[in-house]
Nucleic acid binder design. Structure first.
Length: 108
DNA sequence: TGAGTGACTGTAA
DNA sequence: CTTACAGCCACTC
């Protein structure tokens, strides 16, 4: 079972994503020790949609899979572009270049 | 109570 | 290269 503070942990990590960077559900899940529950990360974000910069979280392909949750499906793309991230259609260009590993929190 | 669904991922064919 | 399947956990009907 997920820790009761799971959402809070996701909240903290997502908020820690540097400006102009993005990460994936799996990376967050892994960082929390629930690598196999990546879906739960998306679920947690949905619960905290308006309390975290969820637009910085995409799937492992850099695809804006959660854009629908923003109400306006262009909102997520817009937010990313505002941070200097190039988005083509629903996918981040050079995703690997913008990718940020949550585990690098303590590395800095 | 049981079955279906989802902001995912990894592996196999 | 794309498509399919299984595992995962919580929520909703």
């Amino acid at each position: 079972m997920l820790p009761p503070n799971f959402i809070d942990d996701v909240y903290r990590i997502v908020r820690s994503i540097p400006h102009g960077k993005v990460t994936s559900y799996g990376a967050i899940a892994k960082s929390l020790g629930v690598a196999r529950s990546s879906r739960m990360v998306g679920w947690a974000l949905n619960k905290s949609l308006h309390t975290v910069p969820a637009h910085r979280v995409v799937n492992r392909n850099g695809l804006l899979t959660g854009k629908a949750a923003f109400g306006n499906q262009n909102e997520m793309k817009n937010l990313l572009e505002q941070e200097g991230i190039e988005v083509q259609g629903d996918q981040i260009v050079n995703f690997q270049k913008y990718f940020w590993d949550p585990d690098s929190l303590g590395d800095v």
